[in-house]
Design a protein around this nucleic acid. Structure first.
Length: 582
DNA sequence: TTCCGACAGTGGGGTCGCAAT
DNA sequence: ATTGCGACCCCACTATCGGAA
């Protein structure tokens, strides 16, 4: 099959709005694919490459060569080229990858280039990804969408399912079952406002502690143990202590769902950053931070598939094979209408937070394990903190936000009237707010580098966030985690905004030591006010982001915005960008 | 007719490994 | 030795479609 056909259908899919129309277009293409092409054509139209990593990013994909006049590339040729590129390593690798991808792109027409660049860059933006591709595959082969989705979740890749379906029809899906040694998509949770909200929505449920670490799916088969992350990356080699623990369990085989965290001598959890660093270290298991696995679900035990069992029954199995300290703490709220039960659930959640963990997850007792779905039967509850911060700058949006100012740079007040940037956010904004802030920030603009619009620091915005994390990027040595906009506070002036000191001494900051700050005994930063860390001594030697109300230095925009970033491929090349806001 | 579940899109900060400088 | 890039860990939220109620 020619790449041109895929590029054409992708453009058509992007051009229609209705999902049913997108699915119909995808199905039309998939019907024409040979079984052998299915593992390429279907994932491509889902915005996925079979090569998990290619080493190609915005840097190697910018300024592509002139396109070809007529289509000639086949899908198989594209795949072969990308496989070869993924295998390039060693000295000169980047240049070699660039040379090879340019050779590929030179054989592509303009429309094919647009498709390939988006596909490889991971931003297909056609309004259809995995779910709609699976539906299209179902429509093309006569299978039910549910059966296709289930096969993909259990059997791994969309490509493998496509090959089987195109070759043998719907009956082929029977072969895709939970299999020890082959990871399944983990079940995900939605968010509840608080414990009471969760209890109201779920009815009888378990309340489990939510640990802030790395999600792991552990497969044990005899002496063989393998460990996968949430996105099904195999990290077995990085977690020898987990392998050892799994081998001790009194089972012949099992598939367990859990989280790895790190505990200090007092049993309190280390920050997420430390756990992520340890798990990310390939060879650093020796001498690194010791990790503790904590399991909360069992998907299979001794050859029995437990996915269809209720949460309650799966937990019975889990408790049978995993001893107490390796199991998540939980409380069963069998009758959430009962006032005492609700009080106990709230008290349990409060205790989890006191012990330094992230929050709780409420799980409906009668729900099966729905692989890959962010179903409503698991609800997470985490405390939310808020601050009133000042908008220092805004970045131009991409995609559907093109032409609007989107990503806000957020600052907290410093004693001298300047502002310390604590991070950015684009979340929580409605279209109306985007429209409004684009106009309002335009009025406050003092400098525009084509990508980042620096403004007079006057606009106050209420920001919700989950906590603070160490940062070497931002001047206060901390950054907000998961910041999102709640509302604009036009009733407040910049002088009313929260201060850096307030942020650092808040509950969210009490356990974080800003990067670059000298360790002072065991003092948490909350007892080490910023007054002892004079303004001006920035950990990374950067200029303050804003110069207070009298910003008179338009040539010194936000230091974090100089040069491109992986998230903003064109940040350093505004000329190559879309048209500016109208 | 209205409501709501599922999906796609829009990006956030930090960390590591590896190659380039 | 430091910097840049790619990949992957954690993730919140809104708009939209289309089936359920």
């Amino acid at each position: 099959m020619l790449l041109a056909e895929l590029a054409r259908v992708s453009a058509e899919v992007a051009a229609v709005r209705a999902r049913s129309a997108k699915v119909a277009l995808l199905a039309g293409l998939f019907r024409d694919a040979e079984p052998g092409e299915g593992p390429l054509v279907v994932p491509y139209l889902a915005g996925r490459l079979p090569q998990r990593r290619t080493g190609l990013g915005w840097s190697t994909l910018r300024d592509p060569p002139a396109p070809a006049g007529t289509p000639s590339l086949t899908v198989a040729e594209v795949d072969a080229a990308l496989t070869a590129i993924a295998a390039v390593a060693g000295k000169g690798a980047q240049a070699e990858r660039k040379r090879r991808v340019d050779a590929l792109l030179a054989r592509a027409t303009e429309e094919e280039q647009r498709f390939l660049l988006r596909l490889i860059g991971g931003e297909l933006r056609q309004g259809a990804l995995d779910a709609l591709a699976a539906e299209g595959l179902a429509a093309a082969t006569g299978a039910t969408p549910d059966a296709v989705r289930r096969a993909v979740m259990l059997g791994g890749s969309l490509g493998a399912v496509a090959r089987a379906l195109l070759a043998d029809g719907p009956a082929a899906l029977e072969a895709f079952r939970l299999h020890v040694g082959r990871p399944v998509q983990p079940m995900l949770a939605q968010t509840a406002k608080d414990v009471d909200d969760g209890l109201d929505r779920l009815g009888p449920c378990a309340v489990e502690e939510k640990l802030d670490g790395i999600r792991v799916q552990v497969h044990r088969d005899g002496a063989e143990v393998r460990v996968w992350t949430r996105t099904l990356d195999d990290i077995t080699d990085r977690l020898p202590e987990l392998t050892a623990v799994a081998r001790e369990l009194p089972v012949t085989s099992a598939v367990l769902d859990g989280e790895v965290i790190a505990l200090d001598a007092a049993g309190r959890p280390h920050p997420f950053q430390d756990v992520a660093g340890r798990v990310g270290t390939r060879s650093g298991a020796q001498g690194g931070l010791p990790l503790s696995p904590v399991f909360f679900d069992a998907l299979a035990v001794d050859g029995r598939d437990l996915l269809g069992l209720s949460t309650a029954d799966r937990h019975t199995e889990l408790a049978r094979v995993v001893p107490e300290p390796l199991r998540v703490r939980r409380l069963v709220a069998a009758d959430p209408a009962d006032a005492e039960t609700r009080a106990a659930a709230r008290a349990f959640a409060a205790d989890v937070l006191r012990r330094g963990h992230e929050g709780v997850v409420l799980k409906a007792l009668d729900a099966p394990y729905t692989a890959g779905r962010r179903g409503a039967s698991w609800l997470k509850v985490k405390p939310v903190h808020t601050l009133d911060l000042v908008v220092l700058a805004a970045e131009r949006g991409h995609g559907r936000r093109t032409g609007r100012l989107s990503n806000l740079h957020l600052g907290a007040r410093r004693p001298d009237g300047s502002f310390a940037m604590l991070g950015k956010t684009f979340k929580g904004l409605t279209d109306a707010m985007l429209e409004w802030q684009t106009r309002r920030l335009g009025e406050l603009a003092v400098y525009d580098d084509g990508w980042v619009v620096t403004v007079r620091p006057e606009l106050v915005v209420e920001i919700a966030y989950d906590g603070l994390q160490r940062s070497t990027r931002y001047p206060a040595g901390v950054a907000l985690r998961f910041a999102r906009v709640v509302r604009y506070r036009e009733d407040k002036r910049a002088e009313d905004a929260d201060t850096v000191e307030t942020v650092l001494t808040s509950a969210a900051g009490a356990r974080i030591r800003p990067a670059g700050e000298n360790p002072v005994g065991e003092n948490p930063v909350g007892e080490n006010p910023v007054g002892e860390n004079p303004v001006g001594e920035e950990p990374v030697g950067e200029e303050p982001v804003g110069e207070g109300p009298a910003t008179e230095n338009p040539t010194s925009p936000d230091p974090t915005a100089e040069g491109p970033t992986p998230q903003n491929p064109a940040a350093g090349n505004p000329a190559a960008e879309r048209e500016p806001p109208a």
